[in-house]
């Protein structure tokens, strides 16, 4: 029983990483209706920017907000420059655009900062949290930040005018324009916010997985999976999905014999697909009703 509790705790700790990433995924999915494959790479790049700032002697608590601002602006710039011209292109062409962006960001980061892994500091410390060896103060801090972020997003979307406008633009672009919302800029704003949230995710994840250009590869897949599991239309679902994926992955690794590290990911994905077959809109997602 103790083993079980411990594994669940450890799963929650890893799940926090996925939850954070999933939140960024849902954010951009809400704004643009696509899964952005380059999201993880953008988060990685942001994390490198903060690392570079710290290398130049900027203290952590300055580097953090500066990075967020740069990421926000960067996200908007990418949308305006690269994806606004594709707004009228077919969906699959946009997906190809994400793949191109992925290749560019990954390659540029590799050139600037090379592929050696780098230590990344944590503001929360790495001592055991509440006496548990399995969950460190950093991971506890990460869970805390994710939850705060979730609540902040909830308030933003429910109670601010711009949040309402963003929701309207995502739900029904044409109607949104007819009440005077500039939907094109709402999309750009969505990119900016997703990029900033991705930066937070990257900065929180980096102390655990170490900093390098490929650090987000696996994390993003889990983030997507978590977001899909929770229902792509629900930020709360994404966070819950993240924790569930983390816990399941750990339990499967412990209790099912023969699952090495390598089979963890396929097994986790298989579970998610099973859930989707039963509940196609995800755990908390709104079912999409199609009209003939």
């Amino acid at each position: 029983m103790e083993l079980f509790t411990n594994q669940v705790l450890a799963g929650i700790a890893t799940g926090a990483i996925y939850a954070c990433m999933a939140l960024a995924v849902v954010m951009i999915y809400q704004a643009i209706d696509h899964l952005n494959f380059a999201q993880g790479e953008m988060a990685m790049f942001s994390t490198f920017i903060s690392w570079q700032l710290m290398q130049w002697g900027v203290p952590y608590w300055w580097a953090f907000p500066i990075t967020l601002i740069i990421s926000f602006a960067g996200g908007i710039a990418i949308e305006r420059l690269l994806f606004k011209p594709l707004a009228k292109a077919p969906v699959l062409t946009n997906v190809a655009g994400f793949i191109a962006l992925f290749a560019i960001v990954n390659s540029v980061a590799g050139l600037i900062w090379d592929f050696t892994i780098k230590q990344y500091p944590t503001p929360f410390g790495t001592s055991p949290f509440l006496g548990s060896q399995l969950i460190s103060t950093h991971q506890a801090g990460m869970i805390g930040v994710t939850l705060v972020l979730l609540i902040a997003l909830y308030f933003f979307f429910q109670f601010t005018r711009i949040g309402l406008a963003m929701r309207a633009a995502a739900a029904l672009p044409e109607s949104a324009r007819l009440v005077g919302i500039n939907t094109s800029w709402m999309i750009a704003l969505g990119w900016g916010m997703a990029s900033a949230i991705g930066a937070i995710a990257g900065i929180l994840i980096a102390p655990v997985v170490f900093l390098e250009p490929n650090m987000m590869g696996g994390v993003l897949v889990y983030g997507f999976a978590a977001a899909v599991l929770g229902g792509l239309s629900s930020p709360l679902g994404a966070v819950i999905g993240g924790f569930l994926v983390g816990v399941f992955e750990n339990l499967a690794g412990t209790y099912i014999p023969g699952i090495g590290n390598e089979l963890k990911l396929p097994i986790a994905l298989a579970l998610i697909i099973t859930v989707l077959v039963v509940k196609p809109a995800g755990l908390l997602g709104r079912p999409i009703v199609k009209r003939v």
């Binding site: 594709l86 292109a89 190809a96 655009g97 191109a100 962006l101 290749a103």
Partner: peptide
């Protein structure tokens, strides 16, 4: 990688 990405972008633009 970056050159490939840029070429891909050019193509789809």
């Amino acid at each position: 990688g970056a050159v490939f990405g840029v070429l891909l972008f050019l193509a789809i633009f």
